[in-house]
Simulated assay, not measured.
Amino acid sequence: MLIALLADLHANREAAEACLAHAARAGAGRTVFLGDLVGYGGDPAWMVDMVMAHMERGAVAVLGNHDEAAVKGPSEAMVPDARAAAEWTHAALSAAQRDFLAGLPLAVEDGACLYVHANAWAPERWGYINGASAAERSLKATDRRVTFCGHVHQPALYHLSPVGHASHFEPQPGALNPLGGRRRWLAIPGSVGQPRDGNPAACYALFDDATGVLTFHRVPYDHETAARKVLQAGLPPRLAARLREGT
Rank of each mutant, 00 (worst) to 15 (best):
Ser138Thr: 15
Trp185Thr: 01
Arg244Glu: 14
Val163Tyr: 12
Val213Lys: 09
Gly174Glu: 01
Val48Lys: 05
Ala107Asp: 03
Glu124Ala: 13
Val71Leu: 01
Leu106Asp: 09
Met1Phe: 02
Ala59Leu: 11
Val51Asp: 07
His117Cys: 10
His159Ile: 00
Val32Tyr: 07
Ala118Gln: 03
Ala24Lys: 14
Ala92Cys: 04
Arg125Thr: 10
Met1Tyr: 01
Ala11Trp: 00
Pro162Met: 04
His66Asp: 05
Asp143His: 09
Ala233Asn: 10
Arg238Lys: 13
Leu139His: 05
Ser133Leu: 12
Leu179Ser: 08
His223Leu: 02
Gly127Ser: 13
Ala4Phe: 05
Glu170Leu: 15
Gln154Thr: 14
Leu214Trp: 03
Ser191Phe: 05
Lys72Trp: 06
Val32Gln: 06
Gly35Thr: 05
Ser167Trp: 15
Phe216Pro: 08
Ala91Asn: 05
Trp121Pro: 01
Glu124Tyr: 03
His90Gly: 09
His159Ser: 11
Arg125Glu: 11
Cys203Phe: 10
Gly29Leu: 02
Val219Tyr: 10
Cys113Glu: 10
Ala141Leu: 10
Val38Lys: 02
His159Cys: 11
His54Ala: 13
Val48Asp: 04
Ala241Lys: 13
Asp43Ser: 14
Pro195Trp: 11
Ile188His: 05
Pro189Ile: 08
Gly64Gln: 09
Leu231Ile: 12
Leu160Ser: 02
Ile188Asp: 05
Gly42Ser: 15
Leu243Trp: 06
Ala102Thr: 06
Trp46Tyr: 13
Ala96Gln: 13
Pro220Glu: 12
Arg144Thr: 00
Trp185Ser: 00
Arg57Lys: 15
Ala92Pro: 04
Cys203Glu: 09
Leu186Tyr: 01
Ile3Arg: 08
His165Phe: 14
Gly35Ala: 07
Val163Gly: 07
His90Met: 08
Leu239Val: 10
Ala53Lys: 14
Ala70Tyr: 01
Ser161Ala: 12
Ala28Tyr: 04
Asp110Glu: 15
Thr225Tyr: 07
Lys140Arg: 14
Gly180Asn: 01
Gly193Asp: 12
Arg125Cys: 05
Tyr40Ser: 02
Ala227Ile: 09
His151Phe: 01
Asp143Met: 05
Ala11Ile: 00
Gln172Pro: 00
Ala102Lys: 13
Val219Gln: 12
Cys113Gln: 06
Val51Ser: 08
Leu176His: 11
His151Val: 02
Asp222Ala: 11
Arg57Ala: 15
Glu76Thr: 10
Gly35His: 08
